[in-house]
Simulated scan of single mutants.
Amino acid sequence: MSSPSISLCMIVKNEEDFIERCLKSVQNAVQEIIIVDTGSTDQTIEICKKYNASIFPYRWNHHFADARNFGLSKASGDWILWLDADEELETGHEEFLMENLKNKNVTMYYLPVINYYGESFPVDPEKAFLYHQPRLFQNHKGIQFYNRIHETPIFPKNRDSSYTVDYLKVPIHHYGYIEELTKKRGKGERNLQLIQEEYKDPNHSPWIEYHLANEYYRRGDYQKAFDYLNESIFRFLLNGVKPPSILYRLKYGILVDTNSFENALEGIDKAIALYPDYVDLHFLKGLIYYQTEKFSEALACFEKCLELGEQNSKYLILKGTGSFRAQQYKAQCLEKLGRQQTK
């Protein structure tokens, strides 16, 4: 059986600082590189040419899905892998990747994306969120990207039961949320403008309010973020859809960050009832109890976190909530309880 071919599809503009690192990471994994360039004026194009990329100029229309779909139309591989320039595919998994892609019963694979945060480079490997995203899918299956920003590939509406998804442990490392980089690129401002444009559409998805909340959270405008989050939750419920777990992760994260512990405790049990195996919610509950000096209750939460671990591919998970962070807080709780008992 011949090996399946992979086309890497990317949208770029002035990415000379990162693009080589990205392309180098995939050079032994992909057979074709499709670059949609929206107007680079630096060395981006020259760097892409070094990796035999096919480069297609594209007039930017402030719509990421449109640009992604233009790239798809140029790809000839059996599979599509999509990345951004500030990402890299973890190397050493090439054989494993090819073996899995021979299985044509799977249409789309979710890959673990490790999103680093912090002020500057080099990154701290302990400061990261893990989230699985649909990054690899079969070409020529009618799959298209949707959304002006935070675009995502979606199966065609007229699909049959043969369209399936699975998870593949081939990590992607994402550096785009490091503050040094976001300030340099003005990414936050651009994102906010595009999301606000989408928000004007009366038929927009409730995800748009979540993305607005996220942008305002990153700016430290917690009240505005909280208001948009509640609007998003309400609109999901209005549509008869259980609000996604990530909304509750951000909501109770904001309440903890702003020391609104009483308000947080009132609602977090309801969120946990919806997502009982979500380690981050138990961790946040533990923080609430810890900060209000209810150390026995906090201890139980952190022990639950260690029991759950942090390998659940359904959720956005802060690294350490099911391991070292929970362990540290557990030790602190035991110490506090020991001190209390000797008084």
Rank of each mutant, 00 (worst) to 15 (best):
F155V: 04
T164R: 14
Q133P: 00
R249Q: 13
K102V: 12
N69T: 07
V113H: 02
L72C: 07
F129S: 08
I35L: 04
D42G: 06
M10D: 01
K157H: 13
V279D: 01
K330I: 06
Q193E: 15
G338N: 13
S73Q: 13
V36I: 14
E180M: 09
R185N: 10
K336N: 13
D227H: 05
I317T: 14
Y163S: 01
F324H: 09
I6T: 07
P276Q: 11
I11H: 08
T91D: 15
E32L: 08
N230D: 15
A326M: 11
S296H: 11
I246H: 14
G240A: 04
N100R: 14
D269V: 07
G322V: 07
A273T: 13
L168S: 10
Q193M: 13
D42R: 05
L194Q: 09
A128G: 09
F70Q: 03
V256H: 10
F96M: 05
Q332A: 14
Y289D: 11
L136P: 05
V123R: 08
I143D: 05
L89E: 10
V106R: 07
D78L: 05
T107N: 09
S76N: 14
L181S: 02
R185H: 12
A53Y: 01
I143W: 01
S260Y: 08
C301G: 12
A271D: 06
N259M: 03
G39W: 07
L287H: 04
R219D: 02
A53L: 08
T342Y: 08
L89G: 07
E231Q: 15
E95V: 10
I55S: 09
G186L: 00
S25K: 01
E90T: 14
N312Q: 12
L284G: 03
D221R: 05
E179H: 01
T152L: 12
A65T: 03
H93N: 14
G220S: 05
L194D: 02
L299A: 02
K169G: 09
C333M: 02
R135L: 10
Y146W: 00
R339S: 13
S260N: 15
P112W: 03
N158V: 04
E90S: 12
Y252K: 03
Y278M: 13
N147R: 14
D257P: 00
L72K: 10
K13R: 14
R68T: 00
C301F: 09
R235F: 02
G286C: 12
L72R: 11
G77L: 01
N158G: 04
S7D: 04
E88L: 06
P122V: 00
K157M: 06
P134M: 10
K141F: 09
K50V: 03
F18C: 02
I80R: 04
N230E: 14
G186C: 09
D37N: 11
K183N: 15
V30P: 05
G309T: 02
Y116G: 06
C301M: 02
L250V: 00
K157N: 07
A264G: 15
A85C: 02
R185A: 13
Y175V: 01
D280K: 03
W60L: 11
K314W: 05
H150A: 08
N239F: 07
K184T: 00
L238G: 06
